[in-house]
Nucleic acid binder design. Sequence first.
RNA 1: GGCCACGUGGCGGAAUGGUUACGCAGAGGAUUGCAAAUCCUUUUAUUCCAGUUCGAUUCUGGACGUGGCCU
Length: 305
Amino acid sequence: MSSKIILISGPTASGKSRLAIDLAKKFNGEIINADSMQVYKEIKILSARPTDLKKIKHHLYGFLSVKKNFSVGQWLKLAIPKIKKILINKKIPIVVGGTGLYFKCLIDGMVSIPKISKTIRNKIITMHSQLGNHQFYEKLTQLDPKCKLYLQSTDRQRMIRAYEVFLATKKSLYDWQAETKPNFDQNNFIKITLIPDRQYLHKKIITRSRKIICNKSIMEVKKFLKLKLNKKLPANFIIGVKEISDYLEKKITKKKLIDYIIIRTRQYAKRQFTWQRGQMQGWTAFDDQKYSNLSKKVSLFVSKT
RNA sequence: GGCCACGUGGCGGAAUGGUUACGCAGAGGAUUGCAAAUCCUUUUAUUCCAGUUCGAUUCUGGACGUGGCCU
């Protein structure tokens, strides 16, 4: 079992965190966060950050200010050394979270493209807003024809990325990507993904959303709003931040607030299901509704692998 | 009880005598440095009955329902 790395993914509210803790206890593990929003310090309740952190070591949770930007690349730079260090200490790293892209890049690796200056990026953003999607696409595909194969003219976010990479490095983003190399031996990974029944998960999402709306989470958002952050920072997108802020401004009722949070959480879970189906085909899936069964099955699977 | 208005998909909301917008929700998909983000595709309707008409969701009458005003 040496040098194994356990990965646990699954949609929101599927019970990943609890499972990770149990596995860590059984197999002498340490937990590493793979959730893009649970990294933020100031938003604890809304991001559903695990609370029971006493006995088991948890890494990369709530360590970053909401004032900071964050990305897959930065996560990898932190997560890879953590994993290696845990392995050196003869313990099992258990990577848990809901961000599919983080797992993909952890497993497949990620090319390191030189950092692109803010000046270039801002220039391109301005250019895009002047040209509009369609003309920008024309210009981009002239510069880098490979983009035709991978990008749609409506995909602003990715078009801007492709453009800035080409402009700054004189090389297509897709040529860079072709050079991707994995950071670990594929056999090291034990890939576990939870795929609960949709209806069952929806019920859990409703229960959790109702529970999450409380004085504490409202306070959390009040404090967050006082920071007057740039609206583009990722922490703004944590489910509940926008909704509670609308509620505080009396734009929506409390009933609506809860409804909207449920809807957004469900949509998020839906995208996670899509990711699982499309990107996690080699993973071992578990769908037990009863936690004790799930825990037993997964433990058995891990000890056999 | 009388008068007026309205009745479009799960919800909101256009239009039309013959190919039924759109938004939200739902479903499916994509996803390499913002990913709880971003983008693409897509199912579902004209309250009911009769009449006019080649044809009615649209015009006429009635039924039922909803809202408002009056007594």
